[in-house]
Design a protein around this nucleic acid. Structure first.
Lengths: 344, 344
DNA sequence: ACTCTACCTGTAAGCGCATTCAGAAAGCGC
DNA sequence: GCGCTTTCTGAATGCGCTTACAGGTAGAGT
């Protein structure tokens, strides 16, 4: 923006026939100002449609209230749900949120952090897994460290361990283990897993947890039972298709993400298979839409909005001096119609 | 943020043993700077992890690159899809997006615009319908007008006519009419409509278009065939339930929004009715997930991401002097399995 | 060799605001 | 009614940066 005709505090002060300082004080209420003067200032401001210049305010020392949130893709329902919580808390605290989508491009992530740093955002929230890349991790640290040294807050949702910052983490491992137990309970013994990129901790944890749960019953998950694909609906679809092409032996398929499960379900339908009569299918996350699928998806329900809310709260609260806090939020297995008992 | 130890340009200049001006020029590349000096400056900046203070830059006149986007709810798939387009274009243009969710609170909307104005955002994007409220419209104008006079750009996606600004609009009316025709083609003659709040232009337009399409075949839509509800999944669910409770005579239900259609579909399933065998169901928008429903939803496909992209492009391009531009994007009827031919 | 013209570099003036500091006004006790 | 304290006001400073503007240096032209 560059239109010149901007009303400044000086204009207001002149119109109200007071000094700049008085106008500032009247507007901010930092100090007592004689009632009639304040009235005059407020009236003038109103009349001139004055809006303080946030940049000037920030520069002059007033802590400005903006936070940055970086995610992979706003349109992913998983993130959208988290973002909802983030937005609510931000709104309640009068914060402006600068939201950036990296579209899973590490470079963009770094670039955005740098921009947020330039904006002197009071906090930065990183949502979603990081990248398995040493160079990237270094670059990330190179942005984050000076930012924090400068007083910036950083919080993370479901993210790399490499960062030593406040974080909110869903209990992926425990949730997946619980899911495994529930599926075993239904009589399943042969499983297949649709996994996302193995580099992501989310994937690793859920996989490990699932294996753990199975192991308790002496059931093993072979590497060949795991198919890797992109963390998207299409990824789930293609992974499921590949699985089917090679001949599916499992009675139950676990997609590490609801979004992938959605794709998988469609792939199964397209292949003429019925869920759960022919195969049971389970997901993870409990994004809002999965209960409206037919059959409704069995999944591990994560408090997604709360994840966002807590993270934002961490980011707001001053943490200097504190050692990094970790908040773990449990998931809960929700059995719906996409899984059924295996006929004995 | 308020941590003092912030590296400033002056620090860099001192470290590089050049003047402040030279450092600035070297970093911004605005003017030729002797090669060795530039090297020194760049090295110093790098070494000190210098990040320019965007506020100071903005204040000093450098046009800063941030845009504001205001929507009702990030987690609504309709908006999420649009936001995706917005984010992409913003990212490609090096813009930082400040995103705000109003949660359909008119006051919040005004408050956010005011904040964006304070931030001197170079453009503001309003996504989604406005409110039918004279007081609100006045308040909105009171924020928008000075903002535009100050050189701010404003663009709108699918929104009130009351604002005379650049806008991108889906062809709701035409799309709904085309859908009506397609449904008539399938033999349907008795319809019911799940509408959102009648105050929203989106609802009004889609309703009008649908009526229009039906009228061409001499089919009328009685007021009693229209059920109003919130613009959400639950709204669709409850509207459908009410419709069923009162005894459904229609052979086809049109939900003015896919999100509502999703709720409706579940309500139908819960009532033991089969789609499309017992009732056909159609939506509008083509949000990504509806093709994965069972049955896949017939709907009017809107280029949602493109809506966001175009709007952002409008917002970026300087429009001063130009009269407000309106971009209309057509929808396309997509027949899927949720609608079927009526047995003769 | 000397002047003139390019080209850089550094000095300094704000951008709009919060805030410190000193001084004016007002209230109090005696 | 005078001096004191207590409020409140206004002038001035600086936040970090960009950008005229002026000064300096070096190369070109004659």
């Amino acid at each position: 923006m560059d239109g010149r005709p901007h009303v400044t505090l000086e204009d207001v002060a002149r119109a109200a026939e007071v000094s700049l300082a008085t106008a500032s004080r009247a507007l901010n209420g930092t100090t007592k100002v004689r009632a009639d003067l304040r009235e005059r200032v407020l009236a003038a401001a109103e009349q001139l449609a004055y809006t303080p210049n946030a940049h000037a305010q920030a520069l002059a020392g007033a802590s400005h209230r903006t936070v940055g949130v970086i995610c992979h893709d706003v349109s992913d329902p998983y993130f959208a749900a988290i973002a909802r919580g983030v937005m609510r808390v931000a709104g309640d605290n009068g914060l402006l949120v600068m939201l950036a989508s990296t579209f899973r491009d590490p470079q963009k992530e770094i670039a955005y952090i740098s921009m947020l740093r330039a904006q002197r955002a009071s906090a930065i929230l990183l949502v979603g897994s990081g990248f398995e890349d040493k160079a990237w991790e270094r670059a990330l640290a190179a942005e984050i460290d000076p930012y924090r040294r400068g007083g910036g807050q950083v919080a993370v949702v479901s993210r790399h361990r490499s960062l030593r910052v406040d974080s909110v983490q869903p209990e992926n491992r425990e949730g997946a283990a619980a899911l495994a137990r529930a599926l075993l309970e239904l009589g399943h013994r042969r499983f297949a897993v649709l996994a996302g990129p193995r580099a992501l901790t989310t994937v690793v944890d859920r996989l490990a947890g699932f294996r753990e749960g199975l192991a308790e019953a002496g059931v093993e998950l072979a590497e060949s039972d795991i198919v890797e694909a992109a963390f998207t609906r299409d990824g789930g679809h293609s992974a499921m298709s590949r699985l089917l092409a090679r001949g599916l032996e499992a009675t139950c398929v676990f997609a590490v993400t609801d979004v992938m499960a959605i794709g998988a379900m469609t792939a199964l339908r397209e292949a003429g298979l019925s869920v759960p009569a022919d195969v049971s299918l389970a997901g993870f996350d409990d994004i809002p839409v999965v209960r409206d699928l037919t059959p409704a998806l069995t999944t591990v329900a994560l408090p997604l909005e709360e994840l966002g809310e807590r993270a934002m709260e961490l980011a707001i609260r001053d943490s200097r001096g504190t050692r990094s806090r970790v908040l773990r939020l449990p998931g809960e297995v929700v059995l719906r119609q996409s899984t059924s008992r295996v006929p004995a």
